[in-house]
Amino acid sequence: MNSESDKAEAFVGRLLQNPALNGFSALQQEEQIIQFLHVNAAQLAPTLSSAQFFPGKNWNAVFSLLVSKLTEVIDRSLFADLEQILTERIDYTFIQLLRQQQADKDMIVRQLMTLVRKLLQKSEARRAFTGPYTALHFGLADRYVEEVFSRKSYIHFELTKVQRLRMGKEEVRNFVDVTLLLKPSVFMLGSSAQSQQDRATGMVQNQFAEKVLGSLKKELKLIPEQVLASAVHASVSFNENRFVEATSRLAAIISARSRNYQANIKVDRGADSPDKSWLNTARRNYKFYGFDIKMLDELYKIAAENVW
């Protein structure tokens, strides 16, 4: 192991094997490690710049090398996982139902993967993809959609009567999953249109979203406009646009929730469950994030009942 690249890969590999990162998705692990490198720069720099690791390199150079190697390593597992989710987990029957014609699954998957690969090269989009990807990886939307359909309450009404999705539970679940997958597409045109608050909440202005939708339609010709609109509107505040689709509102909440999700977390005695805690906090910050409060209320009840 002589090349710096090999050393960097070995170092990153060891960090990724750390048990403290168990229960996180690949992108969360990437964020954790980058943050770790940032926070501990002062302690890491002397050792990593030594003869044993990367002699003659200053910290910035070492940091860049490690981050690029980390991205490379994460991309391998991330794309393999996404490929598997897109080909094996998501059923595209809902697209047929929306377009009223046959759809070639392979072509759809190829288009989606191409777009996602392109998006993930942008740092903002990559960061914004952490929540949606974590939700897809752990199937977090699925369990809520399941409950929404068994309760047949507000969210179900919004999905079936307001958004008029004439489809079953499985199709809606896949619809939400594709919405999540394409949610970071709002960054395909850059993020300069975002205000400071928008950057904090991950939201974009309505007009900007419509502009993105126009571009997205050109990129993903096989995906129905309703799905693309749902994905783009998942980054539009419900305060600003009361006509945001129910799937968008649901995806926005689940994506935000999933950003800091950790599987198999040990909950302290005396604390509420993670989803219930997060949703209750989100209920109080719904205006800040532009969430639908009624949707949060129902999801909170679901989380409380299921001790999620």
């Binding site: 750390n18 954790q32 800091n260 800040f288």
Partner: peptide, 15 residues
């Protein structure tokens, strides 16, 4: 935390 872009969430990793 959401507004604090300069300081994202702390890492679960430690030295």
């Amino acid at each position: 935390n959401a507004s604090d872009e300069a300081e994202p969430a702390a890492s679960h990793l430690s030295m």
